[in-house]
Amino acid sequence: MRQLFIIATAFFWLLLLGFATTDLWLPAEVEAPLPVADSKAYALSEVARHNSSDDCWMAINGEVYDLSSYLPDHPSPPEVILAWCGREASEAYRSKMKERAHSARADRLLAEYRIAALGP
């Protein structure tokens, strides 16, 4: 048991160190451009028409996102996120649970689903 503990702990810290120094030992990749031109804009009334699980748009922080394909991957129970389809969901995104914001990783992930800016 003692040996198992020592080996597992050492392995854990080594992996952690490996992740923390990814920039040093892994060549940087060129990021693909976002799939949508910045000039496009949708009004909230248009967003509101996409309010189902098959066709789910949300307005978050001045941008419009099509999250239809992401919904099955979201870790929360479906009803939590479905309720925000077709709506302005900035506040919900900032305080998803018990006033907790989404992680930096979630922000990166969200950007991939942006389809337009939120227009008047």
Binding site: F12, L15, L16, F19, A20, R100, S103, A104, R105, R108
Partner: peptide, 27 residues
């Protein structure tokens, strides 16, 4: 570690973002 590997599959730099306590909140 498994959550970091999940992020790694998406993009390697994201693995450390998943683990880095400075990028996280109190929970």
């Amino acid at each position: 570690l498994a959550l970091a590997l999940d992020a790694w599959a998406e993009a390697p730099p994201l693995a450390w973002q998943t683990l880095d306590p400075r990028a996280q909140s109190w929970p």
